[in-house]
């Protein structure tokens, strides 16, 4: 399961602070929703279901955007590298 690093703090407005590295980031609205769902322990099928009920998006595109987004989070060192146990 995907897991955010423990020293990453996320504000309600989408501001992200990585206390370990001292880096900060900003999320757009959908980015924030997804990160919050990851934080709440949801997996991809659940996240897909929740967001596709709310937004006009087909599952195929969503899957591409989602994994691309997660790859970026990994790239930015915000996700536990061994998060998928």
């Amino acid at each position: 399961m995907l897991k955010l690093k423990s020293n990453v703090a996320i504000s309600e407005s989408g501001f992200v602070f990585d206390a370990g590295a001292g880096d900060s980031f900003s999320l757009n609205a959908t980015g924030l929703e997804i990160v919050q769902l990851i934080q709440a322990g949801k997996d991809f099928p659940e996240i897909l279901q929740i967001l596709s009920e709310k937004y006009e998006v087909d599952p195929e595109s969503f899957e591409r955007y989602f994994y691309d987004f997660v790859a970026t989070l990994k790239q930015m060192n915000l996700i536990e590298q061994d998060g998928e146990d």
Binding site: V16, D23, S24, F25, S26, L27, N28, A29, T30, G31, E33, I34, V35, L51, E53, K54, Y55, E56, V57, F62, Y65, F66, D68, F69, T72, L73, M76, L78
Partner: peptide, 16 residues
């Protein structure tokens, strides 16, 4: 009526 979807994005903030 569903909302329009914007693809999720995260960007680094380069202070200074």
């Amino acid at each position: 009526n569903k909302l329009t979807f914007e693809r999720p994005i995260i960007q680094r903030i380069n202070a200074g």
